[in-house]
Design a protein around this nucleic acid. Structure first.
Lengths: 204, 204
DNA sequence: AACTTGACTAATTCTTTTAAAAAATCAAAA
DNA sequence: TTTTGATTTTTTAAAAGAATTAGTCAAGTT
């Protein structure tokens, strides 16, 4: 009955995601998740070795969603700018929807980058790789020129991260994660950033 | 003897800067600063209302240094790119020299943005304004086109900040402030970023 | 054999307390 | 006006204990 196992795993993932997204990792206990599902707490540990793994699995699920949306959009073969603007926007939408899910990883990251970084590091890479592929497409369309795809993609990713950090530095809300209001502001800046960045790679 | 007052203020500032730069704000006591100067601790409070004011004054002093170096360089009237690359590099040099001075403001900033932000917020603005002026010069030289100077300068500043944050996220050292080794990496990325960004503003 | 649980242990977080250190004040002197 | 020693007030640090929560396990169910 390997099928049933997958179903249960998915159920757990789903419930956990909801709780993490709403209350955050720290304010969610395994007991609560179990109760939501009418499972015993011990059963959760049958499917996931520990809480962190569960959290990471949820995070991965959401990141997959982020990536695949863009992947689908890319198939429609628009210009690079269109794709990147879409990527930035859909990413922001998902972050807004799963607010506290990401909040935890950001804040934990700062307190203990070494431990947490191992978990979310791969996600960064996957996002960067996607940017890399988008850039490659732009080159194929002869819209832009790029010599090192990975490096340039990383530069783009970092500059976009800067928009977030910059806004948060300025606005001075009491945590390091954006308030819902700030999401729009960040998005706007990121869009502008994308346009300038792409112009900077324009071939001519 | 208003002259003497200024001299003493400067002496305090100098000694405090040294200690802050070396040991950081948290690990420096007013008593130590006083001892270095062979003053009484109470005298420090005659010149500065509290420790925070002293710290801020030191920070301002260093930021002034950063800004004025670039200002001097700007007089030599090179191209925008040259000026920006110089700005980025000299800023990095000063940060490296005054390592723990900035470390404190960064880390405090994250823990309590509201309070600390009021102090370092103005510095951000001044740096942004300088970028703004640099861009203006580029427009006058007909090297680039910019419609909103402040906005574009902010975008540039944020994207450069992103290089720092990005590197730190990747490297996973145990604090959120760069190790000496990372400074070079950040600088390199920032230089590349400046070039792409400026190409993105290029008029043609 | 794969799955599930209640009861148990171990680790972590959350107070509370107390002592030490450092910031900040102040009356008085130079 | 400038300077200080002595004093007070705040912060920080460490320790101890309680409470919550993560994680384990032997035994039971399907």
């Amino acid at each position: 009955m390997s099928k049933n196992v997958d179903v249960k795993r998915a159920k757990i993932l789903d419930v956990a995601k909801r709780r993490f997204a709403h209350f955050g990792m720290a304010k969610t206990t395994m007991a609560e998740i179990a109760k939501d599902l009418s499972f015993s707490k011990a059963l959760l540990y049958y499917y996931f070795p520990d809480k962190h793994s569960l959290y990471t699995a949820v995070l991965e699920h959401v990141v997959n969603e982020m990536l695949s949306r863009v992947e689908v959009y890319m198939k429609k073969a628009m210009g690079v700018e269109g794709i990147l603007l879409y990527a930035v926007e859909s990413r922001m939408t998902i972050m807004r929807e799963n607010y506290n899910l990401f909040e935890y990883s950001s804040s934990q990251f700062i307190q203990n980058p070494g431990e947490m970084g191992k978990n979310i590091g791969p996600f960064f890479e996957r996002i960067r790789d996607q940017y890399s592929r988008i850039l490659k497409k732009g080159v194929e369309n002869e819209e832009i020129e790029v010599d090192d795809f990975n490096e340039t993609a990383e530069l783009l990713l970092f500059s976009l991260m800067g928009m977030r950090v910059g806004i948060l530095s300025k606005d001075l809300n009491d945590c390091l994660f954006p308030t819902p209001d700030e999401f729009d502001l960040i998005l706007t800046k990121q869009q502008k950033m994308v346009k300038i960045f792409l112009r900077g790679l324009r071939s001519n």
